[in-house]
Design a protein around this nucleic acid. Sequence first.
DNA 1: TTCTTTTTGCAAACGATTTGCATTTGCATT
DNA 2: AATGCAAATGCAAATCGTTTGCAAAAAGAA
Lengths: 144, 144
Amino acid sequence: MKHAMNQKPDYEKELRKAGVRITRPRRIILDILTSTEDHPDAMKIFHRAIEIDDSISLSTVYRTMNLLEEMGAIHRHAFNGGPSRFEQAHGEHHDHLIDIETGDVIEFQSDKIEKLQEEIARSLGYEITHHRLELYCRKITPGE
Amino acid sequence: MKHAMNQKPDYEKELRKAGVRITRPRRIILDILTSTEDHPDAMKIFHRAIEIDDSISLSTVYRTMNLLEEMGAIHRHAFNGGPSRFEQAHGEHHDHLIDIETGDVIEFQSDKIEKLQEEIARSLGYEITHHRLELYCRKITPGE
DNA sequence: TTCTTTTTGCAAACGATTTGCATTTGCATT
DNA sequence: AATGCAAATGCAAATCGTTTGCAAAAAGAA
Ligand SMILES: [Mn+2]
Ligand SMILES: [Mn+2]
Ligand SMILES: [Zn+2]
Ligand SMILES: [Zn+2]
């Protein structure tokens, strides 16, 4: 149950090391990603980006998200089956609780659940590469 | 960890009760859904359907899946963010382990995890309406 | 059977994402 | 600083899964 107070990793260095060029669009998109607490989709990232440089295109946003995902620098989510939403990968692993009324996304972490998942996979002859746990919830109203 | 050996529920009765007409396409689609162990997507259901009646259209498959989902007769999954895949809702709740190499889907159930999920939601002031737990795994190769 | 309403098939529209291609850019090299 | 080339961009068109409008067909109540 931890809100990752992430000290920014040096993505530019990571990109360079991966033999990838540092371009203006990429710098801007990385800035957006590292300076937000939420889980924006491509369109939202695009809108934030053109506020800084209105020549950036939506395809570049998509291409950059794919690149960063392949590098493991971001995670992709598809809450509800909606459009992909992203967040930087740094900080510790967590899962998500989605308020189905407001759309709010709350992050949480449970070592116990993580352990149980491992056990289950193991008992079936598998090892987990990644997983997804989403709780779709409604706020508890005490007087009801 | 249970493979639901589901005795077929009477969907036709359920549909009638909901004031919905029993049509040939719907009967065929329901048959496909109740007689399969896997998690087919709309296209796969469509192909199985036209083998029985080649006049069925893909839109009818989609419309029927939406109808059945609203009635709570089926569940919809979006593994990996791919196309929607379906399974009948009868039988007990379970989650899914996906073999990322073969695409196989294995069902499992853990009361402990379910309980922990409730606790977490509760502690954040929420109650769960539904959830999704997917383990993406690779088969364990003992000699490696 | 007739009548009314729902459902269908088809084709066109849709939203999210990807792609082809000509142009621009990053950056390693002079 | 100027050059050269590969990599990345913007744009428009294509793609994929899914939904929709509409006229024709089928369900089921009377
Ligand atoms: Mn987790
Ligand atoms: Mn579960
Ligand atoms: Zn998150
Ligand atoms: Zn299942």
